[in-house]
């Protein structure tokens, strides 16, 4: 029986060096709300766990080019109390705040939710809709990666050995823009999305949708962007016909599985329902911004 090693470096370079140098299974730890559960359930038995919470860049929220750079280990509770991010990307913040419970919110992070690579991760469709970009540091330097390219399958990421997500940039956005995220769970909290839908859109001065992004979670192996759903909104005032087309496109894009959390049939139907409801909330927010 091998003991697990725990390290808590305070620099990005230190973390990268530890993770790159680990001999066996290595894991990065942010809030730990997934990792600790997996450890206890004996789903993983890493030789080395590297805690990233002491690295300042991973714990800060900073304004950048009209948007915000959010450290990968910033907790949901911290993000939820940041007036700037809440005003600019309320849909992303509400998605992060749906993770777990009040207690879990003290730990759960946007970076952890992204790198756990669950198809049902709540923050990911919202971030995809927001055109968020992850900053990845590794032995070969730093690269910028659209968030939808981080997960490549359930529990699998495109990160190379020694690479970590340092931060996520939530970009600047035009006037009259709004976003929203909705998920369906059978109860009201403490659950995993059966379906998640994130919508980000911009309206022109006459209230016509000039740009939109729609992303769905928990309806395929990966959270996904659905361009045809977005296309249903662009050029419309989100009239009934446009919303019908949006819902049909969202449902049509689903490639779900039947499992204990929901049937294929149910997920397909509800994906359309949620996309439509999220679009209306996003438009209402855009109208106010």
């Amino acid at each position: 029986m091998n003991d697990m090693r725990y390290e808590a470096p305070d620099t990005i370079d230190g973390a990268v060096a530890l993770l790159a140098g680990g001999r066996g299974e290595v894991r990065a730890l942010a809030g730990g709300t997934d990792l600790l559960v997996q450890l206890r359930a004996e789903m993983i038995a890493p030789e080395l766990v590297v805690d990233l919470k002491r690295i300042p860049e991973l714990r800060s929220i900073a304004a950048e080019d009209g948007g915000f750079r959010v450290g990968a280990a910033v907790s949901g509770a911290e993000l939820g109390e940041h007036p700037g991010v809440k005003a600019l990307w309320p849909g992303v913040v509400e998605a992060v705040e749906l993770i777990g419970s009040t207690q879990i919110q003290g730990r759960a992070s946007l970076g952890g939710n992204l790198c756990n690579a669950s198809p049902a991760a709540d923050s990911v469709p919202a971030m995809i809709a927001a055109r968020a970009v992850a900053r990845v540091a590794g032995p070969a330097g730093t690269r910028e990666v659209p968030v939808e390219e981080i997960a490549i399958g359930p529990g699998k990421t495109s990160l190379a050995k020694g690479e970590i997500v340092v931060s996520v940039l939530l970009p600047a956005r035009p006037a009259r823009s709004g976003d929203a995220y909705l998920r369906f769970i059978p109860r009201t909290e403490m659950d995993i999305a059966v379906v998640g839908a994130g919508v980000s859109l911009t309206l022109d001065e006459s209230g016509v949708c000039s740009a939109a992004r729609v992303a769905l979670g928990a309806v395929a192996a990966l959270a996904m962007l659905v361009p045809e759903a977005a296309a249903a909104l662009v050029g419309t005032t989100l009239d009934e016909a446009a919303l019908e087309r949006l819902a049909a496109a969202a449902s049509g894009a689903c490639r779900p599985i039947d499992d204990k959390r929901g049937t294929k049939e149910y997920r397909i139907k509800v994906a359309g329902v949620l996309a439509r409801r999220a679009a209306l909330i996003a438009a209402e927010r855009a109208g106010r911004s």
Binding site: P186, R187, T188, E189, M190, D191, I192, K260, R261
Partner: peptide
């Protein structure tokens, strides 16, 4: 209780065996 065709329980935890939470 959700059993698979193999006779094994698939929701042996409070995540997927859904007792009400306070907000429900």
């Amino acid at each position: 209780y959700i059993y698979g065709p193999d006779g094994k329980l698939e929701n042996a935890g409070f995540l997927d065996y859904r007792i009400p939470v306070a907000s429900d």
